[in-house]
Nucleic acid binder design. Structure first.
Lengths: 116, 116
DNA sequence: ATCTACTACTCTGCATTACTGAGTACCACT
DNA sequence: AGTGGTACTCAGTAATGCAGAGTAGTAGAT
């Protein structure tokens, strides 16, 4: 993982995982695997599990233990009402940030065009 | 500042400041003020100054001391070749992240529409 | 002259978060 | 017994932003 990406994930990985769970309930190992498929190739399991415990403690998700055919029981997480609310807030914060960064990017772009 | 925004700024504030300086050279107090005007109303000075010292140490910016009419001399930062390269990398990482988050957002949106 | 206010930069300690790297446990197959 | 894949846990570390205080320079008010 590039250092840049690691730092950028701080504050966004939580939203990404909440959104993943919002799409459909999932357990840690599955979430980690899905993130890796999505291109976050170097996400470590420990990071995801720690995050899941965090959001569980904050009461954003409900947890259900489900036996697995191939290993220890799975902790299946699903977004509850508080989690949905929190995810909405995340989209808002994210939108605010992307708009400002996008604006900066375009200002630089325009400047470069004028410099030709 | 919301806790969400604080965490989200980790890893992105650096790019925001680099982009701000790329637009035109600037000094710390000015950058802080500009960020506040842009909507990052609760950015603290200490954060920006610490970040500037960091990117200076990494050799991403050049610094020039310029006397001020109204206070201590200003440290004017401008992006150098290495900084420009680094900023390009930032845009790449940022694009990767926004694409994936945007995709997640739309998948949830589509799901909600189907759920009607 | 000194007090206040604004400009401008610095510094220490803290909270949060992701990574590293190791460990535990359960099951299937050889 | 040993290997490999599934599934979760945990201690220690690095990086970053915030809180809050401090230092300094200039100008105008008291």
């Amino acid at each position: 993982m590039s250092k840049q990406m690691t730092e950028m994930l701080k504050g966004t990985l939580e939203g990404i995982v909440l959104a993943t769970v919002a799409l459909r309930p999932a357990y840690g190992y599955e979430i980690t695997a899905r993130l890796r498929e999505e291109g976050f190739s170097d996400i470590v399991e420990g990071t995801v599990y720690a995050l899941l415990i965090r959001i569980e403690k904050r009461g954003l998700v409900d947890v259900e233990k489900v036996p697995s055919e191939k290993g220890p029981p799975r902790k299946v997480y699903s977004l509850n009402a508080l989690g949905i609310e929190y995810l909405e807030e995340f989209w808002g914060t994210w939108k605010f940030l992307t708009e400002r960064i996008e604006r900066l990017h375009q200002e630089i772009d325009n400047q470069q065009k004028q410099g030709d």
